[in-house]
Write a protein that binds this DNA or RNA. Sequence first.
DNA 1: ATGCCCGCTGTAAGCGGA
Length: 259
Amino acid sequence: MRIATWNVNSVAARLPRLLAWLGSAQPDVLCLQELKCTTEAFPHGEVTALGYEVAAYGLGRWNGVAILSRVGLGDVRRGLLDEPAYDNETEPRAIGATCGGVRVWSVYVPNGRDPEHPHYAYKLRWLEALRATVVAETSAERPLAVLGDFNIAPTDDDVWDISLFEGATHVTDAERKALAVLRDAGLTDIVPRPLKYDRPYTYWDYRQLAFPKNNGMRIDLVYADAAFAAAVTDAYVDREERKGKGASDHAPVVVDLSL
DNA sequence: ATGCCCGCTGTAAGCGGA
């Protein structure tokens, strides 16, 4: 089984590339983030025509997550247990489903904006709700993984130059501690292979030639329970998808499993 | 060549992204 995650930065803007990538990469399950559309506006017809079932969760301009599967899609859950709100709104940032016997969560962790900003405290509260949801869903019955844009670089090696990140989100101790607490719930960071250079970055800013200079970050993560991790045979970042006109600023992370 | 920001929208000298 092949399971992938991709922050597409608008599914409407990315639709031609999404459909082409489904055809070439042939994932069985694909977790999407940053749909930037409502649940109803998701391009169901185009995706189902390729043999995928769809569970989407979006409210419009910001955020939005989905799971696509061609190996069955059931027990869909939208949102986390006791998910915190921001500005009195619960944002569409998490969706879970069981696909081919595997429990899969597609998540878009809040950005945080600045360590002093209320969005940062929201990010930490949100990560705690994710941990509680994972604990509640952990089961010996089926493998489980949380895939998506975590907006956290787990180590200093996961950004191109840590000296540029002083006082910035994505690298703070509190965010990394939240990831460590998530791992303590029984999850392992499945680190993918880079297809070029030495570090498996998954995001490169659109500006300042970040991609050709390889000024990247590894912030799209696959957090797997023991059964899922034991079945992993390969994992890589498909940096080819970051090239060219009409690319997302994130590349897909692809995981192959002996399931 | 991987190439100098993108996508959405209250169409803005706007916002969020990371």
